[in-house]
Design a protein around this nucleic acid. Structure first.
Lengths: 183, 183
DNA sequence: TATGATACCAAACACGATGTTCGGTTTGAT
DNA sequence: ATCAAACCGAACATCGTGTTTGGTATCATA
């Protein structure tokens, strides 16, 4: 990877996220992006196969950040408590908060699905050991889907109702989805 | 409204739902629809402003059926118990079942949002008197959104995991979302 | 049976967005 | 100085949308 390549790639990402703060994904054209990034059309398609590919890459970047592996040893946030599920939730919300400006632009239509599909995959991994069997005949897969969707929809709600702290949102989630085991 | 008009409209709806059983909404073109309905392009646009308009109309038809007002006095289904929330849920699921074949084709991408937005509006009306305050500081709006999304996602899950009865699905939902008041 | 309104049809069109191809230019390492 | 890479913009083919045009079928009424 060249230095120029990285620079161009960053310019495209920046223009893209900038646009997402104003318009929804569906209303953004490739022309908008290359105008904003001041980049040739050919160059854009040299970096990304399609507009969806760009979005997928952006989501990958976001999730790499949000689900970074320093969950327990985190110092920047105000929990030095044990690494329990609640703290994990709060941690993720803190990281997500940094992307809140342009999240509403993604979380609708086809783009919302691209984001959510990947998001839910990550959440499944995360929840796989926190999901307790309800002791009643409910399929495990339903259970997992239920928790994952609850959290994803909580994030969507947050993006439409900003002004709450990650701790508050975490509290809302845990109180309405009391499905976790304490470790 | 002419008799011819109704016939044409029905032909378009039928072709549309037929296509939805095979392809997702996003992959269906207007050309596909008018070919399937054996109808001229001009005629299609005389009936519906856009493809989205057709979908919106279809959703309206579905919900008119699903949320029909005979909730309490229903005899065809096997609950003659009191008109409580559980029975209401089961009733809705019974009606939704009749549209299950083509629901997966709708419940993704932009079309999923069109469906879900309208669906959630109906559910809000329905749940507005069944939603109990959790006795803890969780915003009422969050609460309502939580319940509505839970049910909507349950339906989505059902559409991807067919083979369960409405009673089973209702039970899954009520056990994982214990937020209702008994009347 | 003649007439006129209304629905219908096919074909062609303008438009907007996508993704590709072309020849030429800049950058930066050797 | 050279050479490969990344870049540029302009033109292009393609596809789907929604509109326009001019003509045909249906059906009620006179």
């Amino acid at each position: 990877m060249d230095r120029r390549q990285r620079k161009t790639r960053k310019a495209i990402f920046d223009a893209f996220t900038d646009l997402l703060k104003k318009k929804s994904y569906a209303r953004i054209t490739v022309q908008d992006i290359i105008d904003g990034a001041d980049v040739g059309r050919t160059t854009f398609y040299a970096h990304f196969e399609t507009k969806d590919d760009l979005l997928t890459s952006l989501c990958a970047d976001i999730f790499e950040h949000v689900f970074s592996e320093d969950l327990g040893k985190e110092k920047t946030h105000d929990f030095s408590v044990e690494h329990d599920t609640g703290a994990m939730i709060t941690h993720i919300l803190y990281h997500l908060q940094e992307h809140m400006e342009y999240l509403p632009g993604i979380l609708s239509g086809q783009s919302g699905e691209i984001f959510m599909t990947s998001f839910k995959e990550h959440l499944k991994d995360l929840f796989s050991h926190s999901c307790r069997s309800p002791g009643v005949p409910v399929p495990q897969d339903y259970m997992m889907n239920h928790m994952v969707c609850d959290f994803a929809e909580t994030v969507r709600w947050w993006s439409q109702n900003p002004g709450y702290t990650p701790e508050e949102i975490s509290s809302f989630f845990l109180r309405t989805t009391p499905l976790f085991e304490s470790p």
